[in-house]
C-alpha cells in the first residue's frame, strides 16, 4: 500500500493497519452472523403461535418441486424477452436520436433536443403507464416501448457526445474525399463514436435489464412478478422470504454477468483505443490515483445510471 498522500508506513503502522483490518473482518462477519441467526430464530407472534425461523426446512421445501423452477425459468425468459427486444429498439432509437441531435438543420436539431430533454426528465414508470393507458397496448409492449424510448434517449446522448468528441478533421477528411455528409457520418464518424461509447452503452443495457422489473407494477408476468407474487400466492405466504432471496440471486447473477461484460469491453476498447479521440479529461478510470487509493476502475455510466 503506497500512497503519495502520506509517507510509506513503517513496520509499526503496517502491523496496526493489519490489526484493524482483522478486527474489521471479524466485526463484519459478526454482524452478518447475528443477522442470519436472528432471522433463523423461531418467532412467536402476538397470538402465541410460533413461526419457524427463516432458514427452517419447512420454508425451503418448495424448491425440490421441479414445477417451481420451471415457473421461475419462465419468468427469466419473459424478463429476457422484454429486455432483449427493448435493447434492440433502444439502440435503433439511440442512433436516430444522435443523428437528429447532430443534424445540420436547426429544424431537426432543436425539436430533437426538446424531445430528448423531455424523455430524459420523465420517470420510466410514468411512460409505461402512459403507453399502457393511452395506446392500450398490453403490458408487454407498454414496457418494451417505454424502456426502448427512455434508454434510447440516453444512448442517443452518449453517441452524440462520442460524435462530438471526434476531431473535426475526421468529418472534414470524409467530405474532402467526396463522401456525402450522410456517408461521412455513417462510415467515418459513427463507427468511431460507437466504439468509444460502447462501455457506456452496455452499462445502460444493464440499467435496462434492471428496469424490466418495473413491468411488474403494470402486471406483466416477468421474473419479479412470478417469483414474489404468483408463486408465494400459490404456495403460501410463508415461502415469501425464500422466494425473494432466490429471485434476488437470479437478478444478481444476470446483472453481474452483464456488468462483467461491460467492464471487459471497457478494458478492451476503453479510452486508449482509438488514439485520435480525446477522452473526457476528468472522470476517466485510467487515472493514476485510482490505483494509488486501491479502488478498481469500472466503465459504468455512473451518473446516468440508477433509473
Amino acid at each position: 500500500m503506497s500512497s503519495v498522500l502520506y509517507d510509506a508506513p513503517g513496520p509499526k503502522a503496517r502491523a496496526r493497519s493489519r490489526a484493524i483490518s482483522i478486527v474489521g473482518v471479524i466485526l463484519v462477519l459478526a454482524v452478518l452472523a447475528w443477522l442470519i441467526l436472528a432471522m433463523g430464530a423461531p418467532k412467536t407472534s402476538a397470538n402465541g403461535a410460533v413461526q419457524p425461523g427463516l432458514w427452517d426446512a419447512t420454508r425451503w421445501d418448495v424448491f425440490s418441486d421441479v414445477q417451481v423452477w420451471r415457473s421461475l425459468g419462465g419468468g427469466v425468459i419473459a424478463t429476457l424477452k422484454m429486455a432483449g427486444v427493448a435493447a434492440v429498439l433502444a439502440l435503433i432509437i439511440g442512433v436516430l436520436f444522435s443523428f437528429g441531435r447532430t443534424a445540420d438543420h436547426k429544424a431537426i436539431r432543436v425539436p430533437t433536443a426538446v424531445v430528448l430533454e423531455f424523455v430524459r426528465g420523465m420517470p420510466v414508470l410514468l411512460m409505461i403507464l402512459f403507453i399502457l393507458l393511452v395506446f392500450s397496448t398490453g403490458s408487454y409492449w407498454a414496457g418494451v416501448s417505454a424502456l426502448a424510448i427512455y434508454n434510447g434517449a440516453i444512448i442517443g446522448e452518449a453517441l452524440r457526445a462520442g460524435i462530438q468528441s471526434l476531431p473535426r478533421g475526421q468529418r472534414e477528411a470524409g467530405l474532402a474525399i467526396g463522401l456525402t455528409p450522410l456517408a461521412t457520418r455513417f462510415t467515418i464518424e459513427f463507427p468511431q463514436a460507437f466504439r468509444q461509447m460502447l462501455p457506456i452503452i452496455i452499462a445502460q443495457l444493464v440499467v435496462l435489464l434492471k428496469d424490466t422489473s418495473l413491468a411488474f407494477i403494470v402486471g406483466y408476468s416477468e421474473l419479479l412478478r412470478v417469483g414474489v407474487k404468483n408463486l408465494p400466492d400459490f404456495f403460501g405466504n410463508r415461502y415469501l422470504f425464500s422466494f425473494f432471496l432466490v429471485v434476488l440471486a437470479i437478478y444478481l447473477a444476470m446483472n453481474l454477468s452483464l456488468s462483467w461484460v461491460a467492464r471487459f469491453v471497457a478494458r478492451r476498447s476503453g479510452p486508449k483505443a482509438g488514439k485520435l479521440v480525446d477522452p473526457e479529461p476528468t472522470l476517466t478510470p485510467k487515472d493514476p490515483l485510482a490505483s494509488v487509493r486501491g479502488g478498481y476502475s469500472t466503465g459504468d455510466a455512473g451518473g446516468q445510471g440508477p433509473a
Partner: peptide, 11 residues
C-alpha cells in the same frame, strides 16, 4: 447496484 429498485422497494 445490480439489484432492481423494484425488488429493493418490495423488500
Amino acid at each position: 447496484r445490480n439489484t432492481p429498485l423494484t425488488l429493493v422497494l418490495f423488500f
